[in-house]
Amino acid sequence: MTTAAVDQDLARRLSIGLRAYLSFVIAVGLALPLLSLLQDKGTIHVTWLSNTGRSMLPWAIFVAVAFVLFQKFVRRSCMSIAAWALETPGDRYRWVVVGCCLLIFTSYSWQLHIGIAHRGVPGWVYAGMPDVIQPEEPAKLSLPPDIDPAVFKAALQPWVMPYIHRSGYASSEVLFLHFKDGTMRPANYELAMVSWPKSTFGLANGQMTHGPEFLAIVKHNFANRRAGGPFLMPGAISYPSHLNYQRIDYRGYPAAEEIVGASLWTLTVRIDDHAGAVNIVGATKVAQVNG
């Protein structure tokens, strides 16, 4: 048997192995949404499987059908890849290229999210998004008599007004930090380090399940930001966090050790587009966490 014949034979075997692997990936890629669908219908119960993957079924069917219909093309491509990988026996990097491509293909086909690859950004829309500014005044607006309205006003950014083109009422939840000197100052959930702090820290019915942990994290991150940046880079030029909250300059605030609690409020403002004015008209406490 000549060297070329051995290579040809090896390439053929490698090509078969490659096709077998692709078939396996595509078969599992088809089985996963099918199982997910059955899970959703209650026919089966698999503990590790989510029922949200059923939406991928049409795509998985499309890929499987295309794989079967274009077998000739797949066979020829696998043969070319195998021949290329074996072309220079000393060049191991060709195996790295093939391996990486298979890893990417597998990861996306099975929606694995392995850290170095994920399932792609999900699709979402903003159609039906409610207006932030409502023409009607919300019912039962009130301000707490023991708190100066200026405290709440500090949580507003009036320089946004030139970009607002309608009048009415707008509401938003605002986090306040409480300090030993009796002051309360605005903050936001960026200090809590997570995208969904309410669920992470268990906020429901005015109570926070993990209040001490919440306050510990807020203090930890507040100390960094008060010092000028989230970590070693100055805040103004640091890599933007995925927690895309407004930037607050905490440098004028008391030290982190002075924090004694945090409270969450729903603030309502009245916006007068023509006058360019915004005023606090309501503040309702949602939750309180004490240190």
Binding site: S55, M56, P58, W59, P122, G123, W124, V125, Y126, A127, M129, D131, V132, I133, A155, L156, Q157, P158, V160, M161, Y163, I164, A170, S172, E173, V174, L175, P186, A187, N188, Y189, N244, Y245, Q246, I248, L267, V269, I271, V278
Partner: peptide, 30 residues
């Protein structure tokens, strides 16, 4: 998969942008 082939019609980035500007009145928002 999540929305449909008409995603670009439903995306309504304009509504998001208007909301983003109006929400910016508060320091607590994105």
């Amino acid at each position: 998969i999540d929305i449909g082939p008409g995603w670009f019609l439903d995306a309504r980035l304009d509504l998001f942008s208007i909301a983003a500007v109006e929400q910016s009145l508060f320091v607590s928002t994105w």
